[in-house]
Simulated scan of single mutants.
Amino acid sequence: MSTQEKTQGKAINAKPIMGKQKVPAQLATVTDLNSEEVQAVSNAVNPLIADAFALYTKTKNFHWHLSGSHFRDYHKLFDQQAGTILASIDVMAERVRRIGGTTIRSISMISELQTIKDDNDDFVPPGEMVKRLMDDNTHIAQMIRAAIEAAEHSRDNATANALEEILDETERRKWFLFEVMQGKDNTV
Rank of each mutant, 00 (worst) to 15 (best):
R95G: 04
K58W: 01
E149M: 15
D73C: 07
L55R: 09
S35Y: 07
Q80A: 11
K117G: 09
A25Y: 12
S108V: 13
Q114S: 04
N34M: 00
F78R: 12
L177F: 04
D90Y: 10
I107C: 05
T57D: 14
I99H: 02
D185G: 14
T3R: 15
E171R: 09
V96P: 00
L55T: 12
L66R: 02
S111T: 15
A44G: 11
P47Y: 01
F123Y: 14
H153N: 14
M18G: 10
V38A: 04
I116C: 02
N43D: 05
H75T: 03
N137P: 09
H63P: 01
L77I: 09
F78C: 04
W175A: 03
H70A: 09
Q39A: 08
N46W: 07
T115N: 11
P24K: 04
R145L: 12
K22A: 08
M134R: 15
I99Y: 01
A151R: 00
Q8I: 12
G68A: 00
Q4A: 15
I148S: 03
M134E: 11
R145S: 12
A82W: 06
S154R: 00
D79G: 07
K58V: 01
L113Y: 05
T59Y: 02
N34P: 02
E5W: 09
I12C: 10
D121I: 06
Q114T: 10
I110K: 06
A141E: 05
Q114A: 05
M129Y: 06
K15N: 08
Y56D: 03
G100P: 03
F62Y: 05
D136H: 08
S154H: 01
S35E: 11
N186V: 15
A146R: 14
D122I: 12
H70M: 07
Y74R: 10
Q114N: 06
T187S: 14
I104R: 03
L66S: 02
I144M: 07
A28K: 10
V91E: 09
G19F: 00
G101A: 06
K131H: 11
V96I: 03
M143E: 12
A14M: 09
F123P: 06
M134I: 11
I12R: 13
L86F: 15
M129C: 03
F62V: 04
M143A: 15
N157R: 13
V180M: 10
A40W: 01
I166H: 01
R72Y: 14
P47H: 02
F53N: 02
D185W: 14
P16K: 01
E164M: 09
A93C: 05
S88W: 12
L167C: 06
A141Y: 08
A11D: 00
Q81C: 07
H63L: 04
S67F: 14
A50R: 02
T187L: 14
F178T: 15
Q26I: 13
N120I: 15
L33A: 01
G127L: 07
E164K: 10
E112F: 13
A162N: 08
D136N: 10
S2E: 07
T102F: 12
N46K: 08
K22V: 11
P125V: 12
A147T: 03
T84A: 12
A11L: 08
K20T: 07
E152Q: 10
I89H: 02
E164A: 12
M109E: 14
D135G: 13
E164Y: 10
